[in-house]
Design a protein around this nucleic acid. Structure first.
Lengths: 203, 203
DNA sequence: TTATTTCTGGCCTAATCAGTCCATAAAAGG
DNA sequence: CCTTTTATGGACTGATTAGGCCAGAAATAA
């Protein structure tokens, strides 16, 4: 992006994006209130002072974390769909990705945005707006990918409906995983649900 | 149930179920950590001492609140489906009920179980188990209602798949409402999604 | 060298909060 | 009347927490 001439003074000793990646894990596992500054700074590998210098405060960090998550981990299912060679493959890979995402590192924490972000949204309008925008973007990308893979469905608007169902499926996976729904049962449910969606796209 | 001979001593001055109903609103709006004892006892209309005498502690109360919610407000969509005269009506009423539930009292807080309960589940196994059981029961009741309304779909197992999609739709509504998704857009999305589900049940 | 910036680590504080305790009042049965 | 139970409200505790502050070290450009 901007090469930007070298800054004066001692350079930052850590990568912002890497620190955010570590913070993701804490918020994801503990929730917003459960993630205390000690746990966060320890996971990020920085001191309290560096923390406040770089991220202003906890709620500011949380926003950055949500954004980072949405750009990386959270975007996997959509990306999987976009890069697939066919409609069937797109849905198959999407299904695998949403289950895997909800069980990242074999820990069933669901989705940071859908579970932690949404809960916090009720008391923090900025988080609400952010999560809303992430969901909208996700749904739009899915819709576009489906339009590309199933062009005949576009006239009926079936791709929009299917995109909405895909988002619902993703969110449902997140919730169910977080409360301990068995992963194998989830895999087969998702498969069956996506088969129904595929059928709706191609008749 | 049990008539149970009159207790000795001064009778309780409030209804447990009514107190729970008031507590529902606080947890729903503030989340688990955001709901402090002052706000809870004030809403419930009881003193701190009465609170601890009746509910042991905050997390115990939260469980009772989740259960109460699931039996009352949260059961509305399923009940609407069960009492409908036809498949089409069942799905229509279910759709209306899930959107209304997510906007109870015109406040878009989503679902107490799916949003607040699921977030807390990661750090409280008892809540996780409780929410899981509530979701399972809900899905079973929907499955049974659909089997009743669409008997021809049962052989293919389509009613199970549809029930799973209905649950996903309900959870998705909850999340979207909580983050500020416009209600009108939600109504039309839900309608379209349920039309797809209905079609899958009847072809 | 000097100025500038970020680093660390720890200490402090001001607030919040769950849970306990107590003294007293009120409502019921025996 | 006495016992039992729940009621009230306020005060208190102990723990946790976000955030601020400071002093000294380290790393870079000018």
């Amino acid at each position: 992006m901007t090469p930007h001439k070298r800054e004066r003074g001692r350079p930052r000793g850590f990568e912002i994006s890497h620190a955010l990646d570590q913070a993701i894990g804490v918020f994801w596992a503990c929730g917003y209130d459960g993630a205390d500054l000690d746990a966060l700074t320890k996971a990020m590998g920085i001191s309290r002072s560096s923390f406040y210098a770089a991220f202003t405060d906890k709620s500011e960090l949380f926003q950055r974390v949500i954004e980072r998550y949405a750009e990386t981990l959270g975007a996997r299912p959509v990306a999987a769909m976009e890069t697939a060679p066919s409609l069937h493959e797109a849905l198959r890979r999407f299904g695998k990705a949403i289950v895997d995402l909800a069980h990242t590192d074999d820990v069933p924490l669901g989705c940071l945005v859908a579970c932690v972000g949404a809960e916090k949204a009720a008391t923090d309008p900025k988080i609400g707006a952010l999560v809303l925008q992430i969901i909208a973007t996700t749904q739009e990308r899915i819709e576009a990918a489906l339009a590309c893979h199933a062009p005949t469905a576009v006239a009926r608007g079936a791709h929009s409906v299917a995109a909405s169902l895909c988002v619902a499926l993703m969110q449902s996976c997140a919730i169910k995983a977080r409360v301990g729904f068995p992963i194998q049962k989830m895999r087969s449910e998702v498969r069956a649900n996506l088969a129904t969606i595929e059928e709706a796209l191609s008749d």
